[in-house]
């Protein structure tokens, strides 16, 4: 097991280097850079920008150097000083712009993941075991709606409906009195009260999808020979279900945890805008629009690293629960 984890960690190094290069290249891809956008804005507002001012600005932002040098300076600062560069549009260090938002995003993502699993796995199991029962049809119907309707639309409808009937605005992650207050126990409590609306909304599509997957996987397993064997031994139905087919059906789902993270984060962006959440999504969108390169690049980098770590964690988890993976591959 230790060997396996060490092996996987070593594999990460080239992967992370590749990700950082790709992140940097992607943000350079669109024509122009932040300065072009910035100068455009200044000129639109009537300010003349002189040739020498542009050069000065380029030097100030380090944009006069060749691309690979910019990359190395960026990486050096990240690795040695934890400095992700400056956001041009916020005029603040990237870490300051992202920091709290990233934590809140992670909190929402993890809550969403837990809620998704807690709802989807039991329903998926029920639907498979009682295939074609009334409840199975009802769950399937609700599930398809959940899959088909975009999350932000659900968010809009709920926000409107709650506001219309109770007059309470459920947008934002904090009540007005806590929004700009420093962190305190009361603020955390406030967060925990309000987080459920976005979590449930963001979880909808994922839950609907996971129910379908779990149902399908378990249906496949239920008719397998090893289930018949266990039954022929005299194992009681309930115990049999959870010891054998459910465990086998859940295993492959564990390995998907890693890459549900980015789906949640990207799915969260639009919902966050609708619900006015102080998470990373809206800022990321802005950073791309204004070509705020260090901000956008750091975002891509951090989210990718989180995804990679998530995948690693779920792979380790999978290896822990599934001996076939632990021992390296299955024959047959």
């Amino acid at each position: 097991m230790i060997h396996y984890i060490g092996h996987r960690l070593l594999q990460l190094i080239p992967l992370l280097i590749a990700i950082s290069i790709i992140a940097f290249v992607i943000i350079q891809l669109p024509p122009g850079d932040y300065l072009t956008t910035y100068i455009n804005q200044l000129e639109l507002s009537g300010t003349k920008v002189s040739e020498s001012a542009i050069v000065a600005l380029e030097r100030q932002y380090g944009l006069d150097k060749p691309m690979y040098q910019q990359y190395f300076i960026w990486m050096k600062n990240i690795l040695l000083h934890g400095d992700f560069g400056r956001s041009f549009s916020w005029n603040e260090p990237v870490s300051k712009v992202i920091g709290e938002r990233l934590v809140l995003t992670m909190v929402i993502s993890i809550f969403t993941l837990i809620v998704t699993w807690l709802i989807a796995i039991p329903i998926g199991i029920y639907s498979a075991v009682r295939q074609y029962s009334v409840l199975d049809y009802i769950f399937s119907f609700i599930g398809f709606i959940g899959l088909a309707v975009p999350n932000f639309l659900i968010a809009l409808v709920i926000v409107y409906f709650v506001f219309d009937t109770t007059g309470i605005a459920i947008t934002g992650l904090f009540s007005p009195e806590y929004a700009d207050a420093p962190w305190s126990f009361a603020k955390v409590l406030d967060l925990l009260q309000r987080i459920w609306v976005p979590v449930l909304i963001i979880a909808t599509a994922g839950t609907a999808g996971l129910i379908r997957t779990m149902r399908g996987m378990l249906l496949d397993e239920l008719s397998k020979q090893y289930v018949v064997t266990a039954r022929a031994k005299g194992v009681a139905e309930k115990k049999l279900l959870f010891k054998y087919p459910v465990r086998v059906a859940v295993n492959p789902l564990i390995s998907t945890i890693g890459w549900t993270l980015p789906t949640i984060i990207s799915g969260e962006a639009i919902v966050s805008i609708v619900l006015n959440l102080p998470t990373t999504g809206p800022v990321l969108l802005d950073a791309f629009r204004t070509q705020d390169m260090y901000l956008a690049g750091s975002f891509i980098l951090i989210l990718s690293i989180l995804t990679v770590i998530g995948t690693l964690l779920s792979d380790i988890l999978l290896a822990w629960v599934d001996p076939r993976i632990r021992f390296g591959g299955v024959e047959e």
Binding site: Q225, T229, A232, K233, V248, V321, D322, R324
Partner: peptide, 17 residues
């Protein structure tokens, strides 16, 4: 009454010893 089956690989659960 107990039973054994055609394909022992499939008849055993692969995730239990």
């Amino acid at each position: 009454i107990s039973m054994i089956f055609q394909e022992p690989m499939k008849a055993f659960s692969s995730i239990h010893t």
